[in-house]
Design a protein around this nucleic acid. Structure first.
Lengths: 202, 202
DNA sequence: GCCATAAGATACGGCGCGTTTCCTGCTTCC
DNA sequence: GGAAGCAGGAAACGCGCCGTATCTTATGGC
């Protein structure tokens, strides 16, 4: 709801209330202008606060946006378990891709690209995938499938586990937009699943 | 006796000579400062010219750097043909990775990341891979290998052909540095080659 | 030798980051 | 309940760099 009076009462917010207002403002700016044109001044204005307040909490622009994404993104869900690997993976990959559908895809792309520029953020990002992230979920799904005899357990290596992720990310980065379903299925049916099913050699 | 003919004779260069000097200056700046800190002023100064001269030839910073890379990068070579696919691919992938070894790897990374930001440049980049680029070379190698019976010809699809490229690029982007040999071999031995050798299903 | 052309020097406007300075209202602690 | 101090808020600044505009001056074609 809207504040009753515009300039009547300069209500001074603090702590968590202020922080929530700021992160909401970030989200709003992302939706409206995208990441490229999200400015610190813009966020401050939208949150009706000022830049020093932002910089007291976050060291720079990407850190601020990370915080906003972390707050607003839906949590990871449990690994799907349909009883069939292909369906599991399809569900899972799609849920990954559509995690930020509330934002213009171009905004997410610009943000990820910006993340990659900074070594520190880059490391944090890749780390977030493995430690308790999607990689674990994938591994769970693969082990279950191996238990059912759907795939060759010998093929399950770290590189192969993260392969779907790597390909989705690459498609997103080079394509500029979330991979369409066609591409996801292609990745699964032409690369990931055949590889997992391939018998060991030698 | 106003002019004691100092070190700088005001030789005014034009056309191709000037252009070469500029692109060399770009290269020098890349080597010395990396892409992030390559500035138009810096290039102009190093080339002993001025910014308007740069902007008369190239519309912006990335375009200028593209021109410099195009001039200084070694040409693509013929696809290797050792008689064995793994060796061919190893040679080829390594040659790709070390194409810009004269530059600090961080500079190449920053440049590629910057390319991805602009839809136009992004498209030009991905296009350069397929049309008469590395993708063609890879396909040639794969077809030869299929002819020798090394791999399953049914596995050769566009997505699979570009798979090694995609994985190298992703490793470069997310790793921040050229993939070490270990990773290249892992990609080949755990993903690409097993997939190519896998028998058709159904 | 004349003149169009492009090089070179310089300065400017713009933008956005991150910081500084100063003021002011809220909260806490005695 | 009052003072001290903490944190929010507003404005302005310096910086760096982009891309452009203006003007002078050398150069090469004719």
């Amino acid at each position: 709801m809207r504040k009753p009076v515009e300039q009547g009462k300069p209500v001074r917010r603090r702590g968590d209330e202020l922080e929530r207002a700021i992160l909401d403002a970030v989200w709003g700016e992302l939706v409206e202008h995208g990441y490229d044109r999200l400015t610190m001044d813009g966020v401050a204005a939208r949150a009706r606060t000022s830049k020093p307040v932002l910089y007291r909490r976050w060291p720079n622009r990407p850190a601020l946006v990370i915080a906003a994404l972390g707050r607003n993104a839906p949590d990871f869900q449990e690994p799907p378990d349909t009883g069939e690997l292909r369906a599991d993976m399809l569900l899972f990959m799609r849920s990954l891709l559509h995690r930020f559908d509330d934002l213009p895809g171009e905004a997410v792309h610009a943000f990820l690209v910006d993340l990659l520029r900074d070594p520190e953020l880059r490391a944090r990002f890749t780390g977030s995938l493995t430690s308790d992230g999607p990689v674990n979920t994938l591994e769970t799904m693969l082990r279950r499938a191996a238990g059912r005899g759907e795939i060759n357990p010998g093929r399950i290596t770290p590189r192969v586990v993260s392969l779907p992720l790597d390909l989705l990310r690459d498609a997103f980065l080079t394509g500029g937009t979330v991979a369409p379903d066609r591409v996801v299925e292609e990745i699964l049916d032409e690369v990931v699943l055949p590889l997992l099913r391939a018998p060991s050699e030698g």
